[in-house]
């Protein structure tokens, strides 16, 4: 295909390292961590107070003018597992250690967003910690107009506030709904009251190698 050459010539590494460098130049030590997977993706984590500034740098300096999405992650391991416990049995022991993923972190919740440079065909995933005591970060609304609905959704699902967003109404749920569904400590009640019937041990078929060990 004729247009493919444009992709093949991409200096992937230099391009993505350049993103990190541009952010480091603009933000200084507010850029906390960065991970570059060559030819694939780049993650950066910035300090909470630099969240909006980082968005402006990404838009104006790095050229990521295409807003992809904004959301959050709750890193607390779910206290309910996958909701497959027998409700009559005593609750099993669960790992409660919070381990943040790529680019690390210090808090339970993180906001993350992705923006894309359409001209040069790459995207950047940017994360920031959300303070545990007061879950509020700056709104990206002045940077990307499309962040409006994404921030409303994140506010509803995680209870994270966005300073500067004019209208953080609920989008999805009926008004009398309580709780923030995507927080890990929000239980799916249907799973807690009824044991999940779908758990079956996979039996090896006749003549099957024992691949299950891996």
């Amino acid at each position: 295909m004729s247009d493919d050459s444009a992709v093949a010539e991409l200096p992937g590494d230099a391009l993505r390292e350049g993103v990190v460098q541009a952010l480091r130049d603009a933000l200084g030590d507010a850029l906390l961590d960065s991970v570059v997977v060559p030819q694939r993706d780049v993650w950066v984590r910035v300090r909470t107070d630099a969240w909006r500034q980082a968005g402006i740098v990404l838009r104006d300096t790095v050229g990521c003018d295409y807003f992809c999405f904004l959301s959050a992650i709750d890193w607390l391991p779910s206290p309910f597992g996958r909701g497959e416990d027998d409700p009559t049995a005593p609750a099993p022991e669960r790992d409660t250690e919070i381990r943040q993923g790529v680019t690390g972190g210090d808090t339970r919740m993180q906001v993350f967003a992705r923006v894309t440079n359409i001209a040069k065909h790459f995207g950047v995933t940017i994360k920031a910690d959300v303070p545990d005591d007061e879950p509020v970060v700056d709104s990206w609304l002045p940077v990307y107009a499309g962040a409006n609905w994404h921030e409303r959704e994140t506010h509803e699902m995680f209870g994270i506030g966005f300073a500067g967003h004019p209208d953080l109404r609920n989008m999805y749920r009926p008004t009398d709904f309580e709780g923030h569904p995507l927080r890990k400590d929000f239980p799916l009640l249907a799973r807690l009251v009824k044991p999940w019937p779908g758990i079956v041990d996979v039996e090896p078929l006749p003549g099957d190698d024992s691949e299950d060990e891996s």
């Binding site: 909701g83 999805y172 749920r173 709904f177 569904p181 929000f186 799916l188 009640l189 249907a190 799973r191």
Partner: peptide, 9 residues
């Protein structure tokens, strides 16, 4: 969606 929080079963 039998276990969903927003679907009427």
């Amino acid at each position: 969606y039998w276990d969903s929080y927003s679907v009427t079963k």
